[in-house]
Design a protein around this nucleic acid. Structure first.
Lengths: 226, 226
DNA sequence: TCAAAAGTGTTTGTTCTACACCCATGC
DNA sequence: GCATGGGTGTAGAACAAACACTTTTGA
């Protein structure tokens, strides 16, 4: 800032909106809330809230996520800030988006009821208020980029998971199919997955071996990319 | 946003700060302004300004850039938003950073004088106020990422440039040396550089051929990466 | 016994890396 | 004639892509 003439400066309402990703039924999903009141009644929106005057922006995002989902200690990142003057036609609000990757099992189901929230697969989004569609799209693009170089997908999976599950998750995020053998070969070369002596029998007759992500081994991996 | 109880909501001062990159003397540089007044007198800061209540955030960034440098139609991108409650110890200000790539020749030199601004090579930054150092660093990291997949470096070069110049620019951004033959080979495979019948004789006795970036040919290039 | 998903290697093409000498010119 | 930066090609390694059959077991 060039100047310290704060008194003359207009202040603006600041919000955070959370793009909450989950994985279910082999699809990447986003959590949305249904607006049961005017304005914009019966449309869907992201979960959001306003930023307090003495509150860090990151803290505001975490607070909103906790209030609306019951979740703490979740992998969350700032995505970008939406600042068009008319983005909210009712009043000037600048909103910073954060994306969270959560494990749906851990999610507080009563809160879903309470907020009339619902999970939507990313290729079947309903009509969203304001610029929320653009927000979701930019968060998906960011996720696609981050996922290639950071092992963040494991935030969307339970502690133990199978390789078919992991592959389906990547396919859901990239929205494209991958070759099973090449996929496994790549993971094998960077050995940060621990194979357990245990199978998940729920998806097939043969059963698929369960794996666990090992953070220590990952940290020794150079140049992780999928 | 969940609620429309706007009246209860605290409003916050919003700023934009510009990380202005230039290229000179084979080095990537950032433009900083010297504070000749209290508080924080004699320290350096980014060029910034406040966001008007009816002004798009992007427009605010462009306005600030124009006011402080005289430049318009510049390649500028939002980087991220800094929102710690205490980031500015004097008052609560949330600031969104934008990075601009400019050609130093076009820059209005009188404004440099007027604002006591100065270019600094990115590896020789002075002490900066608040979190401006972190802002510069995050903008550099973003630039490093963007530059690998988009042909934005040409915004930092004159219309006609030589291959040694271009290579030095990439080296300045990545802060690492590159192999001359591999670099040229890669550019040759994606043929969006037009070789001119003209040499730049200022850097060597032999002279280096001048090239021009061709946007149309670039658009036909798939999978651009350096 | 058969349907359904899990698991496994090889070959080929592409891209990346490392590396050294000649050229043109101004001085 | 020599110092300075500009310009060029090749061989080996690493990585990416394409591709088909066997295994297990519940129904």
């Amino acid at each position: 800032m060039m100047d310290r003439t704060y008194k003359d400066i207009q202040q603006i309402t600041l919000a955070v909106d959370c793009i909450i990703f989950g994985f279910n039924d082999n699809r990447l999903e986003v959590l949305l809330v249904h607006r049961g009141f005017e304005p914009e009644k019966d449309r869907w929106s992201l979960m959001g809230g306003f930023v307090g005057n003495h509150e860090d922006l990151d803290d505001a995002a975490n607070r909103v996520l906790k209030d609306l989902s019951g979740l703490e200690d979740v992998y969350m990142e700032q995505v970008r800030t939406f600042g068009k003057a008319k983005r909210d036609p009712y009043e000037r609000v600048v909103s910073t988006t954060y994306s969270a990757l959560i494990l749906k099992d851990k999610y507080n189901k009563e809160l879903i009821e309470e907020f009339r929230a619902k999970w939507f697969p990313i290729d079947e989004l309903p009509d969203l208020i304001f610029d929320h569609k653009e927000m979701v799209e930019s968060a998906i693009r960011r996720l696609q980029r981050r996922v290639r170089t950071f092992p963040i997908v494991f935030n969307l999976l339970p502690d133990k998971f199978t390789l078919p599950q992991l592959q389906k998750l990547y396919e859901g995020i990239f929205q494209e199919e991958m070759d099973k053998r090449n996929f496994r070969k790549k993971l094998a070369t960077m050995d940060f997955l621990i194979k357990l002596d245990e199978k998940d029998m729920s998806e097939s007759k043969k059963g698929a071996f369960l794996y666990r992500f090992n953070e220590k081994k990952y940290n020794k991996t150079k140049n992780f990319t999928i």
